[in-house]
């Protein structure tokens, strides 16, 4: 089956020779290894990407299902070498330690902003409830997202 989709703004054609998940398509075929696999059952959120504006676990989506979709991964967040404000705030507020959950966290936060540019703290917490982080205790991450809202 041939699938045709947009990945980080770029039209892409892939000839799927076997059934696979979206995460495998991204990591193995497209070498977009920013998307991480932590649990393979949709519990940790490390593999979060955006499909048609919505955050999804790429370990729960079949590659066929993104045919004609718009997919954004962590590699698509910065414009060239210029980090987005969200990424900059992750740096500034110490929202990163080991960094393994970071791509998924960023994608969940990015998806939140696509839908709601001025989320409340509770909405921010809900947006990342499906992203497990074992290092940061979440507080600096919430701070980074909050500051992106307020433009601090």
């Amino acid at each position: 089956m041939i699938i045709n989709f947009k990945i980080n703004g770029k039209e892409t054609l892939i000839n799927l020779t076997k059934n696979k998940r979206l995460i495998d398509l991204l990591r193995d075929d497209l070498k977009l290894t920013g998307t991480k696999e932590g649990c393979s059952i949709g519990e940790c959120g490390a593999c979060t990407v955006i499909v048609n504006g919505k955050a999804v676990n790429s370990c729960l989506v079949l590659a066929q299902q993104v045919d004609e979709c718009d997919v954004i991964t962590v590699e698509g967040l910065a414009e060239g070498n210029k980090l987005s404000e969200l990424q900059q705030n992750f740096l500034k507020y110490g929202a990163i330690q080991c960094g393994f959950c970071t791509p998924g966290m960023l994608m969940s936060a990015y998806a939140l902003f696509l839908e709601n540019p001025t989320p409340s703290r509770e909405e921010i917490e809900t947006a990342i409830e499906g992203n497990l982080c074992r290092c940061t205790g979440y507080k600096p991450i919430i701070q980074a997202i909050t500051s992106t809202v307020s433009g601090e």
Binding site: T35, A78, L91, I96
Partner: peptide, 13 residues
Amino acid sequence: IRQDALEKVTGRA
């Protein structure tokens, strides 16, 4: 700010 933060927020780490 962490030295390795840039590669970690861009998925390049």
